[in-house]
Design a binder for these strands. Structure first.
Length: 948
RNA sequence: GGGCGAAUAGCUCAGCGGAAGAGCGUCGCCCUUACAAGGCGGUGGUCGCAGGUUCGAACCCUGCUUCGCCUACCA
């Protein structure tokens, strides 16, 4: 391909599509389970089948791909398992809403078989979407291994796990207090309930005492008056003196005609006495069937349980007929009105009510008493706790260990049955007599009574049950497969902290239980991506950044149209912000730009503030890299990689290099070290920054500029064999530096690096893709402190010259004479070697002046570079003596401040006595250096007086 | 209510015991044949507040303030 075809700006769209196809077709993402190489495995947290790739996925998956690609290039047998989760309740909410809208039917009216048929159809349609999006991001997932949590193999694993846990007594059926979602008509786990404070009321109600006078009553306070229809007692604290006389008395429960007892209770809940005599009147109504706390009390005090709310969240008998069929809200109003009419209502005051809402459906959760399937959590949790304590699994950032441990030590039994259809049906079978047989396959007869015609339990399992098995069910469990032997445990799990309990904890418990080993050695918890003002991204707020928009671009119209689709509360405000933020829409910045941005911004703090402008910064970096490569490719004519490599690896390889070449190769080693050590510690931002700094501030800003004079073709050059040889060496170093950079950057920005790498001239035969080359490691042989020191001085002198030129507003293109006043001959010899480079970089003509005394004619601007070197720019009458004095005086002042601080330190006897010797020596050296600079500055200031 | 985390340049964040840093922004100058998605130079900070430990504190300890994120059945 002709290099002239390279465009001035990098165009990601075409390039990315080409390479993703190439990688997949060549099977580079696929790992061999029989490979003898060291395994490195990650299981992708399977995204919900309902979802599409959002920025949180992009973040987590990019970090995983960086790790996977890095390890693959390091020679490990890297396997990244893709998959999709069936997301039981999320699918229900979505499909049922759709059903309601299009056919005005509930799922019950549609029937289970038809509902499932539609769910599968829908899964087939949308299940591929997210995989396609993952491919666009360049994620090197092992596609032939892709799995679905409801596929046949996963089904088998789920049944196997259920049966084993049941046989071990770790799964059981029991009637307990559960969270009922009346909208989806299913139980949900504690974790699926969001408790929010909502505006409500606190009602005080008089319960008249049986056999008492008209004024004999006990007053209770409640936020849920409708539940009084199911009250079976009033509780008072046993030691509450106000009520001692009432212990054992009965009250007439208004509206119901029932009488219930006043019971003394004395228990401690959450470290506090219950009932709390200080709260309200100190008397509490007890509704065991519809309040978890009251249920617990009823068990202790042996109170009857009266269920008055049904599965639809409506009142039912034995509530009085008047209220039967009302929703909870309707009943609340009716009960309050009736209490008031009957003279039972004492007070109504506004109150913040903590109200549980279903995370998925948004419905108010009704605590109910029901028979459900449970996992006995404690024995499983104890083993997980022990494993973490023994360091078998480590959390990064480390403080999440506490979060995990806290939850695990307070864990409650896990309700796993759901009254939904989309999911794994529970492998429990009932005979006509109601005996349970739990089995892997449909049994022919009841285990207990031998009766045939068993009916399978209607319920399905919590989605997270199959997710808990995922790290090994994807590898073929319960079979003893090569996959399992090679890739279990996973090397690391990368996921969001909000599913530590939902998922991480359950995988830990299940993995240890069934596999005898933790499922992963590390857990890396990702940050939350928020918008530029720190707000969570949400569709209703209209502040989401869609990764696909970043990759492919989106017109302003598309972005605005999407706002209307979401029907947020304030669409105009959102549109205004979008117009302001992206007046031209979102440019196509490519997957590399997004990936590199996410890595660079991922400093490990709990939030990442992301905006299109931030991503642009990294798009610019990719473009910078592209152009540096473009420049190099325009100058590789006549370059012979084999010849260069033979030379560089020969006995005198290094002597043929100039100081700039030695310097850039040395800096490259540092960059390699920085990237590798950063990635070892999951410090993605440090790794990205190290590459950015090397590419932009060292390779582009200095090396390429220093190399230019040697690369530019000229007649003179072709005729001079020495200069031609030199050009060849410079070409070789530039090619080497770029080639290494591509390998170093590849895990972060796979597309642009592959595109450039394929075009670079390379020596020995290499693999057909960059992604299967070897990741760079620093070679200490090429670390060159002398070259680094020399180029450091070159940079300082260049900057000093540029600064003086700009201060005196000299046109950058105009060459200006400068004098370099140098202290020692040794320094002079060293600078002479690169004087011509300084002249070119700063556009100056440099001569040496004797440093010992000021031999230069007055009327020069001056600046002190270091203790050894001073730059003087003779400007005659142009020099502004006053400004010059001011500038130098400022330098002196700053320098003096440091001197004072160091002298104070060294003058402190305690410091000299107690500080370590190397620290003292360091301070003494600093002081000497500063004093030398001070002398030069003072000298410069003194000579200014001589200016005209 | 309990737990965890964070407060450093205008913004976003590194630094976590011995010289206050980066990127972006801002202000100048430059279309210098890789890149204006660029180059060069400058400006900018009592490191949230108050104590303590130490020869020495942005960094360790204590308290306070303000913001995040989890978590919780206070009638």
């Amino acid at each position: 391909m002709s290099t002239s075809a390279l465009s001035k700006q990098y165009e990601p769209t075409e390039v990315e599509a080409r390479w993703i196809r190439f990688w997949i077709e060549n099977g580079f993402f696929h790992a061999d389970e029989n490979s003898p190489r060291v395994p490195y495995s990650i299981t992708l947290p399977p995204p919900n089948v309902t979802g599409s790739l959002h920025i949180g996925h992009a973040l987590g998956s990019t970090m995983q791909d960086i790790l996977i690609r890095w390890h693959r290039m390091r020679g490990d047998n890297a396997m990244w398992m893709p998959g999709i989760d069936h997301a039981s309740i999320a699918v229900h909410v979505l499909l049922e809403k759709d059903l309601k809208r299009s056919e005005n039917k509930t799922r019950f009216e549609l029937g289970r078989d038809e509902f499932m048929r539609r769910a599968w159809k829908w899964k087939e349609r949308s299940g591929n979407r997210i995989s396609e999006q993952e491919k666009l991001m360049g994620f090197s997932l092992d596609w032939p291994r892709e799995r679905f949590t409801m596929d046949e193999r996963s089904n088998r694993a789920v049944r196997e796990a259920f049966v084993r846990l049941y046989e071990e007594g770790l799964i059981f059926r029991a009637k307990r207090m559960i969270n009922w979602d009346p909208a989806s008509e299913t139980v949900v786990s504690d974790l699926e309930v969001d408790t929010v404070d909502e505006n409500g009321s606190l009602w005080s109600i008089r319960y008249p005492i049986v056999g008492g006078g008209p004024d004999d009553a006990i007053v209770v306070a409640t936020t849920r008056p409708e539940t009084m229809l199911g009250d079976t007692a009033v509780a008072v604290h046993a030691k509450d003196e106000r009520y001692l006389a009432l212990h054992g008395k009965q009250i007439e429960l208004p509206l119901t005609g029932r009488t219930i007892p006043i019971v003394p209770i004395d228990i401690i809940r959450d470290g506090k006495a219950w009932p709390d005599p200080a709260f309200g009147t100190g008397a509490v109504k007890v509704t065991p069937a519809h309040d978890p706390n009251d249920y617990a009390v009823s068990q202790i005090a042996n109170l009857p349980v009266l269920e008055v709310i049904d599965r639809q969240g409506k009142l039912m008998a034995p509530a009085p007929a008047k209220y039967v069929g009302m929703t909870v809200e309707q009943a609340r109003k009716a009960v309050v009105a009736d209490l008031e009419a009957g003279g039972f209502l004492v007070e109504t005051k506004p109150y913040k009510v903590p109200r549980g809402r279903s995370q998925r459906s948004g419905a108010v959760i009704e605590p109910m008493l029901m028979e459900q399937w449970w996992v006995k959590a404690k024995p499983l949790a104890d083993k997980a706790i022990a494993a973490v304590e023994q360091g078998k699994t480590k959390f990064v950032p480390e403080h999440y260990t506490k979060t995990f441990m806290h939850w695990m030590t307070h864990i409650e039994d896990w309700c796993i049955s759901r009254q939904l259809w989309w999911g794994h049906q529970i492998p429990a079978y009932y005979c006509a007599d109601g005996h349970v047989t739990v089995a892997r396959e449909q049994p022919a007869a009841c285990k207990q009574c031998g009766k045939p015609d068993l009916r399978q339990d209607d319920d399905i399992l919590d989605t997270w049950f199959s997710s808990g098995l995922w790290p090994f069910s994807t590898l073929g469990w319960p079979d003893k497969t090569h996959d399992l032997r090679t890739f279990y445990p996973n090397s690391v799990l990368v996921t969001a902290p909000d599913i530590i309990f939902f998922w991480v904890a359950r995988m830990m418990m299940m993995g240890i239980h069934f596999m005898g080993k933790v499922p992963f050695k590390s857990v890396y918890l990702t940050s939350t991506v928020v918008d530029e003002s720190g707000a969570k991204m949400s569709k209703t707020k209209g502040n989401v950044i869609d990764p696909l928009d970043v990759v492919n671009g989106a017109t302003l119209d598309t972005l605005l149209a999407r706002v209307d689709q979401e029907k947020p509360p304030d669409p105009d405000e959102i549109k205004k912000r979008i117009k302001k933020q992206s007046p031209e829409g979102m440019p196509a910045m490519g997957a590399d730009a997004l990936r590199f941005a996410l890595a660079a911004l991922n400093t490990g703090s709990s939030r990442i503030r992301l905006s299109p402008d931030r991503i642009k910064e990294y798009r610019n970096f990719i473009n910078k890299l592209w152009n540096a490569s473009r420049f190099a490719l325009m100058n590789f004519d006549g370059y012979d990689p084999a010849r260069f490599e033979a030379q560089i690896h020969g006995p005198n390889g290094r002597t043929g290099l100039g100081v700039a070449e030695r310097w850039i190769l040395s800096r490259l080693q540092h960059a390699c070290t920085a990237v590798n050590t950063a990635l070892e510690a999951f410090r993605f931002a440090d790794a990205a920054q190290a590459i950015w700094h090397f590419v932009w501030n060292e390779l582009c800003d200095w090396y390429i500029e220093l190399a230019k004079p040697h690369l530019h073709q000229s007649e003179e050059l072709t005729e001079d064999p020495a200069r031609a040889a030199r050009r060849h060496v410079v070409q070789g170093v530039l090619a080497t530096a770029l080639e290494t950079t591509m390998r170093l950057l590849h895990p972060f920005a796979p597309f642009v690096t592959e595109e450039i790498w394929q075009k670079l001239p390379k020596g020995q035969p290499l693999p057909e893709s960059l992604m299967v080359t070897v990741f760079p490691e620093a070679d200490p042989e090429w670390i060159d402190p002398a070259a680094e020191a020399e180029i450091g001085v070159l940079q300082d002198i260049t900057s000093a010259c540029r600064m003086l030129k700009q201060t005196y507003k000299l046109p950058p293109a105009q060459s200006v004479e400068v004098e370099l006043a140098v202290r020692s001959d040794a320094t002079r010899v060293s600078i002479e070697k690169f004087k011509d480079l300084v002249e070119r970089m700063a556009k100056v003509k440099a001569t040496f002046a004797s440093g010992q005394e000021n031999t230069m004619t007055p009327g020069a601007a001056k600046t002190v570079v270091n203790a050894e070197v001073e730059v003087r720019m003779p400007l005659g009458g142009l020099v502004d003596a006053a400004a010059e004095t001011k500038r130098i005086a400022k330098d002196i002042e700053k320098n003096q401040k440091d001197i004072d601080a160091i002298e104070k330190k060294l003058g402190n006897a305690d410091f000299v006595d107690r500080a370590p010797p190397d620290v003292i020596a360091e301070q003494r050296a600093r002081l000497a250096d500063h004093q030398a600079i001070h002398a030069r500055l003072a000298e410069a200031l003194a000579t200014l007086g001589a200016a005209p």
